[in-house]
């Protein structure tokens, strides 16, 4: 077991959950509300120095009772020690978590990917929008276990949506605002811009198979 787990317990007490060793890797579970504070402490405290954020990802288990886990893989470049920190998000609650972009800039795209693939919202992320799927993608979150392998819509519906897509929809709201294209935008997009919203996944259309 990585000694940092003991140090974390000493510092954060009950906000540190169970810790396990799997295949030689130490894994420690942390209270979701404290994740940013814990990771910042791990990064900046002398003796810990987990200054390199290797990866941010999420895991959903096949057992529907098990909560969704967000995984932070850390590595200390000075001490050459890895540590995996996990957060459990119950699936019946809001899948929300503090973003760690203020701690590591590298978390930007990684958190966007978790949001895109699992639907976890990161509070305080500077630019949380879909990254691998397009912005108006309406089928949900592909890596969730309730998402069928071939997608939620039928092939004909997918083709129909692809053909009907508005060409400007390939630009994000932010880019359209740079282009001074505001006046030329459709009314609903203008309304979204005026609300200061961007990158929101639209409501799922009614069942259309």
């Amino acid at each position: 077991m990585n000694p940092s787990v003991g140090a974390l317990r000493e510092r954060f007490g009950r906000r540190i959950g169970r810790a396990v060793v799997s295949c030689g890797d130490s894994v420690v579970y942390v209270d979701p509300a404290a994740i940013r504070e814990v990771l910042r402490w791990l990064k900046e405290t002398a003796g810990q120095q987990y200054n390199y954020l290797v990866d941010v990802t999420a895991v959903e288990y096949r057992d529907p009772e098990r909560p969704l886990e967000v995984v932070y893989e850390l590595f200390s470049l000075e001490r050459r020690v890895p540590l995996r920190v996990k957060v459990e998000l119950p699936k019946d609650g809001a899948l929300e978590l503090d973003s760690v972009v203020p701690v590591w800039r590298g978390a930007d795209w990684l958190e966007r990917e978790v949001y895109d693939m699992f639907g976890v919202t990161f509070r305080g992320h500077p630019d949380l929008r879909r990254i691998l799927m397009w912005e108006t993608y309406a089928e949900g979150y592909p890596l969730r276990k309730d998402f069928p392998l071939r997608g939620r819509f039928s092939r004909s519906e997918q083709v129909r949506q692809a053909l009907n897509i508005h060409p400007e929809a390939h630009y994000s709201m932010e880019e359209l605002s740079i282009a001074d294209a505001y006046q030329d935008l459709p009314a609903d997009v203008r309304e979204r811009l005026s609300r200061g919203e961007r990158g929101e996944v639209p409501e799922q259309p009614p069942e259309s198979r």
């Binding site: 693939m117 879909r130 990254i131 691998l132 799927m133 397009w134 592909p142 890596l143 998402f147 392998l149 390939h170 994000s172 932010e174 880019e175």
Partner: peptide, 14 residues
């Protein structure tokens, strides 16, 4: 502003 995902194949899901 980079846009990626044009070659998304869903390998992780697969």
């Amino acid at each position: 502003i980079p846009h990626v995902g044009y070659l998304h194949s869903g390998f992780e899901k697969l």
